[in-house]
């Protein structure tokens, strides 16, 4: 018989002997300041007061502009931009495909540049301007890249599509859409499992060659 630590995905914690909330209480400066006695602390843990204290503590203010709208949020420092968009702002157009920056499904623009929102902590976004797929069209008028993706069938299931489109727009803006070969290279951070790659390239070429402002 042997003891093994269970794990889940990337969030492997060091083997802390007692990583319960009591540790948090001991370490937290507020509670040090109020100098709770160990007995009180224990009592607090039993009452789960620590949860309530923690929920205040563990959140920080975040101000960012998302699709032209100012958002004043209170987020945990460990929350990714992706999870904030999807779970707090209900902007589910930005997709979670891997959570490791390996698939590109979560691509959004920050101050006009493409990034993987799953690799970006929300609190790093203070004062930034975020554009997600929901913010690309002008009202009912689709962005030329959205039109081109429809026309060239740049998707099947549609799940990677928002990330592909955000990347495609950035690819042209960056000046990386000079040739089919260059587009393929600079779109390779966005995986499409349905295999729409040639259609995606055709869509980008059409927008590029059409000379529209992206």
């Amino acid at each position: 018989m042997e003891k093994e630590e269970s794990f889940h995905g990337p969030d492997i914690e060091p083997d802390v002997e007692d990583s319960s909330r009591r540790n948090f209480l001991k370490q937290s400066s507020l509670l040090t300041a109020v100098a709770l006695t160990p007995v009180t602390a224990l009592k607090a843990a039993e009452m789960r007061v620590d949860d309530k204290v923690a929920s205040v503590f563990e959140k920080l203010p975040l101000k960012m502009e998302v699709n032209g709208k100012q958002q004043n949020l209170s987020v945990e420092p460990r929350s990714t931009l992706l999870d904030i968009l999807r779970e707090q702002l209900d902007l589910t157009g930005t997709k979670k495909g891997c959570d490791h920056g390996q698939c590109g499904a979560c691509t959004v623009h920050v101050d006009g540049k493409r990034i993987n929102s799953c690799l970006t902590l929300g609190i790093m976004m203070n004062g930034k301007k975020i554009t997600t797929i929901e913010g690309l069209a002008k009202g009912d008028q689709l962005h030329p890249m959205q039109e081109a993706f429809i026309k060239h069938d740049g998707f099947q299931c549609g799940y990677c599509t928002p990330g592909q489109i955000m990347s495609a727009v950035a690819c042209i803006r960056e000046g990386h859409a000079g040739s089919e070969q260059e587009i393929r290279e600079y779109m390779s951070g966005n995986i499409c499992r349905c295999g729409a790659y040639p259609n995606i390239v055709n869509a980008i070429l059409e927008v590029k060659d059409g000379g529209q402002t992206v």
Partner: peptide, 14 residues
């Protein structure tokens, strides 16, 4: 297509 390119298509977790 329009739902898929605008992010309006909702998948199970959404």
């Amino acid at each position: 297509g329009r739902l898929k390119v605008t992010g309006a298509a909702k998948y199970s977790a959404e």
